[in-house]
Deep mutational scan, measured.
Amino acid sequence: EDDHHMEFCRVCKDGGELLCCDTCPSSYHIHCLNPPLPEIPNGEWLCPRCTCP
């Protein structure tokens, strides 16, 4: 699979289990988001950068 997502968290710059945005290459740990997510959501997810007006 050709995955163009970042291999590190945009916030802390560390790797591991990352949540990938469905519209851009950004990846995040769920605990690095503000507010943090309790678990990885099902379905499409947009990062804070893509949901800002």
Rank of each mutant, 00 (worst) to 15 (best):
Y28V: 04
C9N: 02
E7F: 12
C12S: 00
N34F: 08
L33I: 10
E7H: 06
P25S: 09
V11I: 10
D3C: 15
K13A: 14
E39P: 08
P41A: 08
G43M: 07
H31V: 10
H31P: 05
L46N: 15
H5S: 08
T23A: 09
P36R: 09
G15N: 07
M6L: 02
P25L: 08
M6V: 11
C20P: 14
N42C: 10
P35H: 04
H29P: 01
F8Y: 10
K13T: 08
L46A: 11
T23K: 11
L18N: 04
I40E: 14
S26W: 09
K13N: 07
H4K: 15
N42I: 09
C50Q: 01
C32D: 02
C20R: 15
C52F: 05
T23H: 09
H31Q: 11
H29C: 05
I30W: 06
G43V: 10
C12K: 03
W45Q: 03
P35E: 10
C21Q: 01
C20S: 14
P48H: 05
P38S: 10
E17I: 07
C32N: 00
N42L: 10
C47A: 01
C52R: 14
S27T: 11
C24G: 00
N42R: 12
P41H: 08
P36W: 03
H5V: 08
P38T: 12
N34T: 12
P36F: 03
G15V: 09
G15E: 14
E1P: 04
L46Q: 12
E44N: 14
C20I: 14
T23I: 11
D22E: 11
C9G: 03
L19P: 04
C52L: 12
N34C: 08
T23S: 11
P36S: 09
D3V: 07
Y28T: 03
E1Q: 04
L33R: 01
C12Q: 00
L18Y: 01
H5K: 15
L46I: 12
F8E: 15
W45M: 04
E39A: 12
P41R: 08
D14A: 10
E1T: 06
T51L: 12
H31E: 11
Y28P: 02
L33W: 00
I40A: 14
P36Q: 12
P35L: 04
H4P: 05
P41W: 04
D3E: 07
L19Q: 08
L37A: 07
D2A: 14
E44D: 08
M6P: 02
C47E: 03
N42Q: 12
I40D: 08
P36L: 04
M6A: 13
E7V: 07
C9P: 01
P35K: 07
C32E: 02
C50S: 02
I30S: 12
E39H: 08
T51Q: 11
P36G: 06
N34G: 05
V11M: 12
H4V: 12
E39W: 05
C50L: 01
H4G: 05
E7C: 08
D2T: 15
P41L: 06
G15Q: 08
M6C: 07
Y28I: 04
W45C: 02
R49F: 10
R49A: 13
W45F: 10
E7S: 05
N42K: 14
P25M: 07
D2E: 15
E7M: 04
L18A: 02
W45R: 04
I30C: 09
F8C: 11
K13Q: 12
P38V: 09
L18I: 05
I40P: 14
N42D: 10
V11E: 11
H5W: 13
T23R: 13
E39F: 11
E44M: 10
C21S: 00
G43A: 10
D14F: 05
P25F: 07
S27Q: 10
